[in-house]
Design a protein around this nucleic acid. Structure first.
Length: 354
DNA sequence: TATACGTGGAA
DNA sequence: TTTCCAAGTAT
């Protein structure tokens, strides 16, 4: 049941939509799926180079399922939300084992795959299979909150439910693939967060927020909370050959499963770092040299990263393990490192005064 | 239901 | 400089 909203949007899309994104080529469920996961909370321009490199390395779901998880994480390095990469790898194995390598076309079965929720499942159904399904991502939320003047923050269940209802109402039976792309394109290029271009908008005629002259009131803003401040030590343990120690982070939590510098409890004073490192390594370490630290802001807290360099005086006889590796810097950078740690190892560390 | 989870661009 | 938030999901 195609309503006026969808018709106007589709007409606009034919002329002004984005028809040439990388995942629009050689379209199949695997490529659509990977693009949808990468695009979660991540802008198109950020995703494009990652998508190209990922597809070159993992052309099919079988390549992904058979790859070491470290390869997947290294291709995700810098993209953020690393649980997406771990889930993607796991879901690829689910597709191979439970669905014989073919993506299911059923919404419920798609949602049974790790990392695929309601909206992503619908996006795959519409984009890859051309079947009717309703998405509700950040773009659609903003467009519909304005079009129907739905008050409140979209994080509230009641608001979200209303938006899902509106999204379902507008979803057409024909051209669903184009429609889903169209409404996202409208949100990304016309009905933008700030300064929406309502003069260009194909559906401004029916837009309640536009009629009220209050487009920027919708959707309601998120209640703000102060971000906690946290502090941590990151130690650069370097042996006489210029190799540094990398450790794999725990599988869950921030930067889960990524390689990074060893982290020490901020309760240690600078003079206790050597002994703490010796305990962890079983090797003798020299005096720490503090390096200029920096504050890194995450979604919900600030982290003061205080690096310290310590020479390892004995020979580093520790064999490479699943959790620890001694590598030269260029080798370390080939691992899946968190972005701030990557910069720390790339830019020459400056000694800080103590 | 609320919170955890990254990064870079925009304002 | 700081805040906001972008093709959300898992817990």
């Amino acid at each position: 049941m195609t309503d006026r909203f969808a018709d106007k949007l589709l007409t606009w899309y034919d002329q002004h939509g984005r028809h040439d994104l990388p995942w629009h080529h050689d379209r199949n469920a695997y490529r659509v799926w990977v693009s949808e996961i990468m695009l979660q909370q991540t802008q198109v321009t950020t995703v494009i180079p990652y998508f190209e490199a990922f597809m070159a390395r993992f052309p099919t779901v079988h390549d992904l399922a058979n790859a070491p998880v470290d390869d997947v994480l290294s291709h995700w390095s810098g993209l953020g939300y690393y649980a997406r990469a771990r889930n993607l790898h796991k879901a690829a194995q689910q597709v191979v084992e439970e669905f014989d390598g073919e993506f299911p076309k059923d919404q419920e079965q798609l949602e049974s795959l790790t990392g695929i929720g309601r909206s992503t499942a619908a996006a795959i159904i519409a984009q890859a299979f051309g079947k009717r399904a309703t998405i509700l991502d950040g773009n659609v939320k903003r467009v519909l909150a304005r079009y129907h003047a739905v008050p409140g923050w979209t994080g509230q269940t009641a608001v979200l439910n209303r938006l899902w209802e509106h999204a379902e109402e507008h979803t057409p039976d024909e051209r669903v693939r184009d429609y889903t792309q169209a409404i996202m394109d409208l949100g990304a290029t016309v009905c933008t967060r700030t300064r929406p271009d309502c003069e260009t908008c194909p559906v401004s005629g029916g837009c309640r927020a536009y009629a009220l002259g209050e487009t920027t009131l919708y959707p309601g803003s998120k209640p703000k909370k102060a971000k906690p401040e946290k502090t941590t030590w990151m130690v650069i343990l370097e042996d006489s050959d210029g190799r540094i120690l990398l450790e794999r982070r725990p599988p869950s939590g921030i930067w889960g499963g990524l390689w990074s510098l060893p982290e020490l409890d901020p309760a240690y004073g600078p003079e206790e770092l050597s002994e703490a490192c010796e305990q962890r390594l079983g090797m003798s370490c020299g005096d720490p040299e503090l390096v200029s630290g920096f504050r890194h802001t995450f979604s919900h807290y600030h982290l003061h990263i205080q690096p310290a360099r310590l020479p390892v005086t004995g020979s580093t006889k520790v064999a490479d393990t699943a959790q620890q590796r001694w590598l030269h810097r260029d080798e370390a950078l080939a691992l899946g490192l968190p972005a701030p740690i990557r910069s720390l190892l790339t830019e020459p560390e400056q000694a800080a005064l103590l």
